[in-house]
Each structure stands twice: as C-alpha cells, then as structure tokens.
C-alpha cells in the first residue's frame, strides 16, 4: 500500500481519505494539494535527512514543486486549498533556503538530531536555573586566547586611528592575521565536509560522533567568521 517513514506520521487525505505520509504536498493517490506537512524539510523533497545533497537536483525539484503549489493555480479552488497553497509555498521556500545553504543545512540537521547549537537554543538552555547549560570549555583554550589577543590588537588600532595616528606595525600584522583566519575558515569547511560524509554513510554511533564534531566545528567557525569580519572592518576603515 504505502510506505511509512519513521519520521512521518500517516494521515488521511482530506479529499480521498486514503492514508499517506505527512510529508508530501500532494496526495499520492488523488493528487490533491495537502495542508503543510508536519515532516522535516528533507521529506518535503522526498529525501531522507542527509548532508551531502545533489544541489542541481534539489533546485530542479524545488522549481517543479513551486510551480505545482503556486497560489495562481488555486485562485479558483476552495478556500482551504487556496490557504494551503500559500502555506505550502511558504514552507517550500523555507525548506529550500535552509537545505541549499551548506551551513544552514548542517545546523538544521544537527537540530533535528537534538544537538544544541545556535544563539536561540543556547538562550533557552541557559535560562532559569542554569541546568542543561552548555559545556563552557567546548572551544579550545588556545583559540580563545588568540581571539582575545586579536581583539586587543583591533582595539589598539581603532584607538590609534581615533587619535589621528597611524600605527605602521599594526596594519601588516592585522593583514597577516586576516589571511591566517581566512585559511582556518577554509580548513573548518573542509573538515565539515568530511564529517558530512561520515554522517551520511555511518551507523548510529558514527553519526553521534560526527554530530559532536560538527557542533564543535560550527562553534569554531562562528568565532573565526566574526574575527574575519571585525578585522576586515578595521582594515577598511
């Protein structure tokens, strides 16, 4: 009859009453538009959660589905179908935007798997009695030292500028630092890609391990990209 994914709850089609996964925008039996599915973003495109994606294929599927749910096609449909076409379009856009970007996709998958990442989650987890707080030592001490030192240099340079001075020694050292941090960013991204493959091909244990590594890499990445941004700003000022 129909295959039920673990993550998808079977529901009955409003039109033909035949059950299907709560992951499709259209009933596989009568082809009628469905309310926004409750599954994850991957299932909207008929995919299992994974990190390595065929982006041209994803884009193709996005365009195909976008045309199918487009509100113009439901202008004369019933009120429910009109509303669903709007809601499905919004969902499809969110899903595509999230999955096509490598970092957003990684963060999204990690959240699906229950990892604590990103500013919004940390605010909640740190709330109230401070239980479930994140391990403060997740970021390596040497990176913290470096971030701190570089921030000191940046501040020094901004102060010197304010006083109308130009510190000849600072500029090259900042430029050097920027190149190094750019290089580290590339390294982090390469490591993330390696972990994608580990996750996509691994068993449950390998996946858990890869998830932990990826959370660490994303933290490192956030520091580095903030630094690169600040250095670039100061150099360009």
């Amino acid at each position: 009859m129909f295959k039920v994914l673990d993550s998808a709850v079977p529901i009955a089609c409003w039109s033909c009453s035949i059950g299907h996964n709560d992951s499709t925008l259209f009933c596989p039996h009568c082809s009628k538009i469905q309310p926004p599915p409750g599954g994850d973003y991957f299932s909207v495109f008929g995919l299992e959660p994974r990190l390595g994606l065929d982006l041209p294929a994803l884009e193709h599927e996005f365009h195909r589905l976008s045309r199918k749910v487009h509100p113009d096609r439901f202008a004369r449909a019933g009120e429910n179908e009109r509303q669903w076409s709007l809601a499905d379009t919004a969902l499809l856009n969110d899903a595509y935007r999230t999955l096509k970007d490598p970092l957003h996709r990684t963060e999204y998958l990690l959240k699906l798997e229950g990892a604590e990442i990103g500013p919004d989650l940390s605010a909640e987890s740190a709330a109230a009695d401070g239980k479930d707080r994140k391990d403060p030592s997740r970021v390596p001490a040497d990176l913290l030292e470096e971030v701190f030192e570089l921030n000191m240099q940046l501040e020094e340079m901004r102060m010197a500028r304010k006083m109308g001075e130009t510190d000849a020694g600072l500029q090259p050292s900042l430029e050097q630092a920027k190149r190094r941090f750019d290089g580290l960013l590339v390294e982090v991204d390469q490591n993330l890609r390696i972990q994608w493959q580990v996750w996509d091909e691994g068993d449950a244990a390998a996946r858990k391990k890869a998830e932990k590594t990826m959370v660490g890499l994303l933290d490192r990445r956030r520091y580095l990209s903030n630094l690169v941004r600040d250095v670039t700003e100061t150099l360009g000022a």
């Binding site: 605010a123 403060p136 001490a141 913290l144 971030v147 701190f148 921030n151 994303l218 956030r222």
Partner: peptide
C-alpha cells in the same frame, strides 16, 4: 578566567 560564547563569538 578566559571564557567565550560560541553562539555570538564573545570573549
């Protein structure tokens, strides 16, 4: 004590 918040990059 040197600590950081990875979420926002604060040190």
């Amino acid at each position: 004590g040197l600590v950081g918040a990875p979420e926002c990059g604060d040190v």
